[in-house]
Design a protein around this nucleic acid. Structure first.
Lengths: 299, 299
DNA sequence: TGAAGGTCATAGCTCTGGACTATGAGTTCA
DNA sequence: TGAACTCATAGTCCAGAGCTATGACCTTCA
């Protein structure tokens, strides 16, 4: 569902955040490299679009109104998400040219790398990072071919000439919307899960394969799907607004769980964990930026 | 720090998300009520701004490229945050006119209510909600004066004529950036925390008071601050980019913890929990929309 | 095979809206 | 009292995004 057509633009929210931070329209204008009257009119326009007054203007500066404070918090969340896109994209765009060349699988690239890179680039402004998103085998191939310095993958490797270290853990979790009956049950059995139609990814997805295998190994046959969707975020949305459970990467729903949009359900006997690993060629000493990045991950 | 000046606008990201969802530019254009060539040029412009090709166009439709898939995920996170602002603001704007009138404290209004309301309004499109953001005493006063049907507060109440139910729990957590030494220590003592300069809110903030009290009660004197900031999000940012710990509401940093931008540190003997409660006047039967909302929270 | 119904891109026109400069009014402070 | 801030208004200008019309390409089906 598209946003309302009169929803303010990112540039306006960004400017507003700066006004709150600096305490004046003029200072925010300077920070954004625009003229003060432009800032003034942009904020006025923002208030018109949102339909509320955000600022108390005075000859000594501008302070957010009570409503403005709440809006500033929400705007901050949007801008943070935008900052991640920017950080991630910078690396994606750098392609082969970065000083630190990373190859990573989808899940890691989407949910973890933008943060890691953002932090890394703040600490090491002189470095540049390039990112390639591929599946695990392609990541390993890229390392062997010398096209990447550091790889991030989701499965254990079996390659003697590579070193590895675990940098994070992912787990498949069973989640439902907060109104679902399972939120009031202490623990679901694997048989119950297997008997319940789920929202699922299409066939061939790694997540789906792992779940099917776990249920089959436990002797409960095949899980059935009530809906099959082509992307993780489509599955998320369907579960939030619908009434069917799904089994999904915890990374993909971490913020939904934190915010209460989704609730995790414990399933007895279902424990699908995977370590997320950094890998690199043992024969080459780890380049300095790569070692710095690993260190900043606490690895 | 402002976003890059050529950062794409929300409208463009929103349109792109629709293209990925519908599989064609024309269909997305229809969903947004614009002409197909406008969508075409907007997406082309988006690709120019981001500097990457997002779509594989063909006479049968458009599919995201590998890069496009990753970008779609990031864009989705931005749009979700924008949706929350929209949901929250709709209620704020409704002021006194909503059928369900809510009064809530800042923390709940900022971090929880947009979700709750978004879900509630999806399930009950015929209802309207108005929201007032105030401190706890004002919330109770609003209920007594009949200006609100349902209140949300962070402290226990002591008013016999009110009913209440716990809808969520907040906890003050000690957090540091992932590079901080404490991430490698099993457990910090309260004395250590008290002896370490912290990033803090200004004096008078509820969070700060609770912490000071806990440390004083344990006989460790007064905590010191290395930096005092006026808003929760400013504290968050300072801890993420800096090297000092803070003690902060878990709700405010839930996504940072999930994404690894911040790490929680356990402090022996520091356990500051508060139940977040819905409250209402016992004398009035809870209006139907209010009861619906509480039910959708699982309360 | 050819017409119908999809896809997307290009061309050319229109006009809105945001940016700028210049100015003025209000407040604080030395 | 004047300098140095604050913000708002007025007037001008032009880039950019929207629209319609059209054409090329592909698939489907009678």
């Amino acid at each position: 569902m598209p946003l309302s057509p009169s929803f303010p633009e990112l540039a306006a929210l960004d400017l507003y955040a700066s006004v709150v931070e600096h305490g004046s329209l003029g200072a925010a204008a300077r920070a954004h490299g625009i003229a003060q009257p432009s800032a003034s009119s942009r904020i006025k326009n923002l208030e018109r679009q949102l339909g509320v007054q955000l600022l108390e203007r005075s000859p000594t500066g501008s302070k957010p109104t009570p409503v403005g404070i709440v809006v500033a918090g929400w705007a901050d969340a949007i801008l943070r998400a935008a900052g991640e896109l920017e950080a991630g994209l910078t690396a994606l765009k750098a392609e082969e040219q970065g000083r630190l060349r990373i190859a990573a699988s989808y899940t890691i690239a989407e949910y973890l790398l933008p943060n890691w890179l953002g932090r890394f680039l703040t600490d090491h402004p002189e470095d540049t990072v390039s990112l390639d998103v591929e599946n695990s085998t392609a990541v390993l191939r890229g390392l062997e071919a010398g096209e990447a310095d550091l790889g991030f993958i989701e499965s254990p490797i079996d390659v003697p000439e590579m070193d590895e270290t675990v940098v994070a853990t992912d787990r498949l979790v069973t989640v439902v919307s907060p109104t679902h009956g399972w939120t009031r049950t202490p623990k679901i059995t694997l048989a119950e899960l297997a008997a319940t139609p789920l929202v699922m990814r299409e066939e061939g997805s790694g997540t789906r394969d792992a779940l099917v295998e776990a249920i089959r190994d436990a002797g409960h046959g095949e899980p059935t799907s009530v809906l099959e969707l082509g992307s993780t975020s489509a599955v998320r949305s369907a579960v939030i607004t619908g009434n069917a459970p799904t089994v999904i990467s915890r990374l993909a729903v971490a913020d939904d769980l934190a915010a209460g949009r989704l609730v995790e359900v414990e399933v007895a006997g279902l424990e699908i964990e995977r370590d997320l690993r950094a890998v690199w060629l043992r024969s080459h000493p780890l380049p300095r930026p790569a070692a710095d990045l690993l260190r900043s991950l606490g690895a």
